[in-house]
Design a protein around this nucleic acid. Sequence first.
DNA 1: TTAAGTGCAAAAACTTTGCATATTT
DNA 2: AAATATGCAAAGTTTTTGCACTTAA
Lengths: 153, 153
Amino acid sequence: MVNSTQYTSAALKAELNSKGWRMTPQRETILKVFQELPAGNHLNAEELHARLETSSGISLSTVYRTLKLMARMGILRELELAEGHKHYELNQPYPHHHHHLVCVKCYRTIEFKSNPILTIGSKAATERGFKLLDCQLTIHAVCPECQRSIVPL
Amino acid sequence: MVNSTQYTSAALKAELNSKGWRMTPQRETILKVFQELPAGNHLNAEELHARLETSSGISLSTVYRTLKLMARMGILRELELAEGHKHYELNQPYPHHHHHLVCVKCYRTIEFKSNPILTIGSKAATERGFKLLDCQLTIHAVCPECQRSIVPL
DNA sequence: TTAAGTGCAAAAACTTTGCATATTT
DNA sequence: AAATATGCAAAGTTTTTGCACTTAA
């Protein structure tokens, strides 16, 4: 378990309460799933729901509501890597913060880090008075394998 | 009309043909719509279809198919700025290439440029053998106005 | 000619919402 | 006690697909 200490459920509760929202077992469980997710993994709503269903019976509605809430709070990052559905991962601070290189054909995804980008992104936001939540470079490209294949689309 | 000379329909035809695909009036028309779109504008499938419907009667299916095709060819950029639907814009080279700063609450979007990011992105792709199609930094943040409002979500 | 592209309508996939009930604060 | 959150089922959006017909190469 690599990332489990980043963001405690107490911190989540505090942040929720400061805005008049509430901590619930569902939200705590969902946070935990993301914290225990191995680096480089992402989940969409359906996948998260599948993991939760067995143990806790959290509904799909709540999954969607929680993902949106946490993304807007800056706790989760919304990734648009593959077709059709958003994926989510923990929004981690500096040493773990990373970007994505995605093959538009096979959707293979590679993570990479870059401090300069983080710096440029923060500056772009703050100098316009925006409060930064997330800063992600997404590179769309064709991977070496797919460059060779003549497969269409 | 600022960008009309960037990418001719002849160039599109050549690129399509090189892969066994075909130029069609629909594809030509859609390219033209994007070329004539004022800087800073984006269209989703529905909006593009609405513009086409009046004159040319291009179907929604074709709109979706064409957007996906052109995005994967690197001609269009797929943007994930607001809720629920993708937006598209021309994927423009260097002097026009830009990134997006988006308010997660009101979805106000600001474009900004950065050469260093383009450089870092190209390098990240090519040093892994990927052929670069697009490189976009998306910054999620809260705009000054929305920081003041206590409106939830 | 013949393989790719289009339009249509139907289906699929994804996400949101209304409402009664349960829970935090 | 009051207001937020949840679960369920239903509805809403967005996107894809099958198929017969058309058209570019």
